[in-house]
Structure formats: C-alpha cells, structure tokens
C-alpha cells in the first residue's frame, strides 16, 4: 500500500465510497416509503438531461448538469401524467414507459452528438469512469499534506464529497420529520408537518446525489446503491437508526470490495484484464443483499405484519 496505491486506487475508492453513501442514505427512506423505483427512475431520467445540458453549454460543470437533470425530471413528470391520462394506463406502467424512453432517448442523443472531448458516452453513462479518476500528482501518502498535489485531485472527488456531506447534513437535520412522515403520514400531517415538501425534498436530494454520482460512477451504481444497501440493512435490524448505519457500512463495503475485486479478481482466476469497477461494486452490493436475505437476523419479519394489520 504505497505510492502506487495512493496514485491509482485511493481516489477511485474514495469516490466510490462517497457516491455509494450519498445514494444509500436517501435510499433508506425511499425503500421504506415503497418508492425504491424512484431511485431507478431518477438515474434513468438524468441521462438525457445531462446530455442536453452538455450540448447547450459545452461543459460538464456541476450547475448545468443539475439544471439539465431537473429539466428532464420535469419533462418526465409531464410525460407520465400525459401517458396516464391519454392512455388510461396505471401509474406504474406509465412511469416505466416514460423513464425507459427518456433513457433510450439519452443514449441516442449521446451517439449522435460529438461528446468525444469529455467523458460522456454510452459506456460512461452506464459504468462511469471510476478507474480513470486517478491522482496523477500523488507521490505517496505524504501527498495528502502537499497542497500542490491536493489541487490536482480529480474534480469529481470534490464534487461528490460536497454532495455526500450535504446529504448527510440534510438527513441529520430532517431526521425526525423524515422518520415520522415515512412511518405515519397522516399523523405527521396532523402534527402540521409539511408532508408533501418533505417527500419532495427527499426525491430532490436523491436526484442531486444521483447527478453527482452519475458523472463519476455511472447509472449502474446509482441504481444499485439506492436499493441494495438499505434493503440489506433492513434485514439486519429493527431500528431505523441502526438500519441507516448498516446501510452506510454496506455501501462502503460494496465500494471497497467491488473496486478490489474488479482490479484483482480476474487475475486471481488467471484472466488478464481488470473488469469494470462500477459493475463489480454494484454486483457486490447485490451479493451483500443476497447474503442478508439468507442470513440476516430480521429477515423473517418482512411482509408478516402487513396481513395482521389488514
């Protein structure tokens, strides 16, 4: 774990961890609200928005990307309403149609437009470019105190760090309203809590996390991290506080193990090339969920209480 690790692996692992946590935190509440697919939907809608924002501004700066994603989200909402009303189709189906169409449209836009100057193509949209986010200037661990070297950190790291910190702060500040309104919406309303705004804020936070993570790690990780760590964490405990802690542990574990397996795993089996880190991180999070389903201490409760309550 010397200079080479710091130069080639430290920043991708850190970005992977921060992106995973930023998505997993709001994912906890989305899963409990039975809105897990919103995370899926967001990561699909983000793509055409980002491409259009890039085509207009010619840059991949944070603000145009966010605005583009927000614009795409509005288009998605209008599309869903239109499909629901004109086609007389149930909301779930309308969502599925709108989100996949928008994503496919984003892929076509990407192919037809000249985005070769930046990391914006179909492959990166899906899998990100984690492996390429290396820290060229790093000489070793001492570079962590070297201002000049720090200035040369990949800008994706700073962006996802800010977003991850923002997500953590928002989760802490709005913990009680989030918890109360997720558990018992009408009680929350009777308390005078702005339930609609809380739900909207949660989705917006998830969208911001998705946009920030999308750039570095691609949509596969975003989709996986919204659902897998929180769902696995739910099987480990019966307390929300502990569940959220577990989800952070699982997200971190997925990022580290996924990156290591992607880089070294194929070599262990005699293969020559590394595989996609983003793909492997998402796979590891899925395996963790599978293990939690098989061995998690509280897996038996899921789905039981509902019949009783009905």
């Amino acid at each position: 774990m010397g200079a080479e690790f710091v130069q080639f692996s430290l920043t991708p692992i850190l970005i992977g961890i921060l992106a995973s946590i930023a998505c997993a935190l709001p994912g906890n509440f989305l899963v409990l609200r039975k809105q897990a697919l919103i995370g899926d939907a967001i990561s699909h809608v983000v793509l055409p928005g980002i491409v259009v924002a890039f085509l207009i501004t010619g840059s991949v700066a944070a603000l145009p990307m966010l605005l583009g994603a927000a614009g795409a989200a509005i288009v998605a909402v209008i599309l869903i309403e239109a499909i629901k009303r004109l086609g007389n189709i149930e909301p779930g189906a309308a969502m599925g149609v709108a989100f996949t169409s928008l994503f496919a449209g984003g892929v076509l836009l990407l192919e037809q437009s000249d985005t070769s100057s930046v990391h914006l193509d179909v492959e990166h949209a899906l899998m990100g470019n984690l492996e390429s986010l290396i820290w060229f200037k790093a000489q070793g661990w001492s570079s962590l105190w070297d201002l000049e070297a720090l200035a040369a950190l990949p800008h994706e790291l700073g962006r996802i760090a800010v977003v991850c910190a923002l997500v953590i702060v928002l989760t802490v500040i709005f913990w009680r309203p989030l918890k109360i309104s997720t558990f018992d919406e009408s009680f929350a309303q009777a308390l005078g809590l702005p339930v609609g705004a809380i739900g909207f804020g949660l989705v917006v936070t998830a969208a911001v996390a998705a946009v920030a993570a999308f750039d570095a790690v691609g949509s596969i990780i975003v989709i996986a991290m919204f659902i897998c760590p929180p769902a696995a964490a739910r099987l480990m405990t019966n307390r929300l506080e502990t569940q959220v802690t577990w989800s952070i542990v699982f997200a971190t574990l997925s990022a580290i193990l996924g990156y290591v397996f992607a880089g070294y795993g194929p070599l262990w089996f005699g293969a020559q090339n590394a595989v996609s880190a983003a793909g492997m991180i998402a796979t590891v999070s899925g395996i963790i969920l599978a293990l939690a389903c098989l061995f998690g201490p509280y897996r038996s409760r899921i789905g039981v209480g509902r019949e009783e309550a009905a």
């Binding site: 039975k34 009680r176 018992d184 009408s186 009680f187 739910r234 307390r239 929300l240 569940q243 509902r306």
Partner: peptide, 25 residues
Amino acid sequence: YVPQRASVDWDFPTTVIDVVMMGLY
C-alpha cells in the same frame, strides 16, 4: 390524532417507545 391502525406499515423498523416519542415532536 390517532389514525386508523391499518393506515401504517407495522413492519417499519422502529420500537414501541420510539413511536410514543413521536408524540413529543
């Protein structure tokens, strides 16, 4: 306000005392 019992998901990861403390919000 005490909503209908069936209006919430009782699988929610929380304890009895936690639910009562929600009344202190």
